[in-house]
């Protein structure tokens, strides 16, 4: 009681003994005060990003929709033609092939990447000598420019000098060369192989990161229960890995579905336009031929699928946040 009274009395005289506090009493410059406001600071910080993204994503997107509804070609402003470009594409047999190919390619490549990537992740999750080196080298296909590594594959699939044919022949598995890239069906499967080779490390490393967050105790508990390896995987590992798997698959589906460079280098859409994907065909029509309107329409056919995939992803994110 005594103390607080003393304190109360002291407060009246307290101010002049304050030590120097440089700068505190100066009024802050206008800009500083402006940036102390949370909302205004946020606006300033987000401005460059919003500007760049609107200019080079939102605007092109709107523009792409407009182009797809017009008869624009290089050097010709074109006019509004409604859905004619879409109808034309749909009635085009090459487009139909490309459309089907895109789904085929995406589906199988994703399945292979998932299965092999999961397998590799499980292998890499064990302790062995040289693990870091192996893990690091496994990512090489993913970091090396796709175009360049695809050239190596193209050379390996070369009609005359294919090392793969040579291997199969020496192994006694074939007697005549396989027409790797000179046949449409083979060509597409080759592309799937290359895509799997390129994308599998991404699956493996991401799933490995997921695996490493799973407590080893869980495995030990499961193995004590007498569960064998497969059971352990199915009942312990997989349920915990499912969320990260879904995300990885979504990313991979988007990338694969919109793939361009791999096909462009490996087959160029040939032979006889049999291996086009939507993106390569859009390039051929829109850029190589210069029919911007039709090209834009073809690439917009990707949108519904991407939309569904993104929607799934967002819903999933929401659910995670809600949980």
């Amino acid at each position: 009681m005594k103390k607080t009274i003393a304190g109360g009395a002291g407060s009246a005289a307290g101010f002049e003994v304050a030590l120097p506090h440089p700068r505190t009493s100066q009024p802050a410059p206008a800009l500083t005060r402006f940036l102390e406001n949370e909302g205004l600071l946020a606006a300033v910080l987000l401005a460059p990003t919003v500007l760049l993204l609107s200019l080079f994503i939102a605007y092109p997107f709107v523009m792409g929709v407009w182009l797809s509804l017009s008869s624009t070609s290089v050097g010709n402003p074109g006019e509004f033609v409604g859905l004619r470009n879409f109808v034309k594409a749909w009635n085009d047999s090459i487009f139909r092939t490309a459309f089907g190919n895109t789904f085929f390619y995406t589906f199988w490549a994703t399945v292979f990447k998932l299965v092999l990537g999961m397998w590799l992740a499980l292998l890499l999750n064990r302790h062995f000598r040289g693990k870091r080196l192996v893990r690091a080298s496994m990512l090489l296909p993913f970091i090396v420019p796709t175009v360049l590594s695809t050239f190596a594959w193209r050379w390996m699939f070369d009609p005359t000098f294919s090392v793969l044919n040579w291997l199969l022949y020496q192994g006694g598995l074939i007697t005549t060369k396989l027409p790797f890239l000179s046949d449409g069906t083979y060509g597409l499967w080759c592309a799937i192989v290359v895509n799997t080779w390129r994308g599998m490390p991404f699956f493996a490393i991401t799933l490995l990161a997921g695996l490493q967050t799973i407590s080893p105790d869980l495995h030990e508990a499961a193995s004590l229960d007498g569960a064998n390896g497969w059971h352990r995987f199915w009942h312990v590992t997989w349920p915990l890995l499912k969320p990260v798997t879904l995300v990885v698959v979504v990313f991979s589906v988007i990338q694969t579905f919109s793939d361009f460079q791999l096909i462009y280098v490996l087959t160029g859409g040939g032979p006889a336009n049999a291996t086009h994907l939507l993106a390569t065909y859009a390039y051929q029509i829109g850029v190589a031929t210069g029919l911007l309107g039709e090209g834009a329409a073809i690439s917009l056919f990707m949108l519904p699928v991407l939309f569904v995939v993104v929607w799934v992803q967002l819903r999933y994110l929401r659910r995670l946040e809600g949980a």
Binding site: I57, S299, Q313
Partner: peptide, 11 residues
């Protein structure tokens, strides 16, 4: 999630 191949023609 928007792939570049969707936008390259208008861009």
């Amino acid at each position: 999630l928007v792939p570049p191949t969707l936008l390259f023609i208008p861009l």
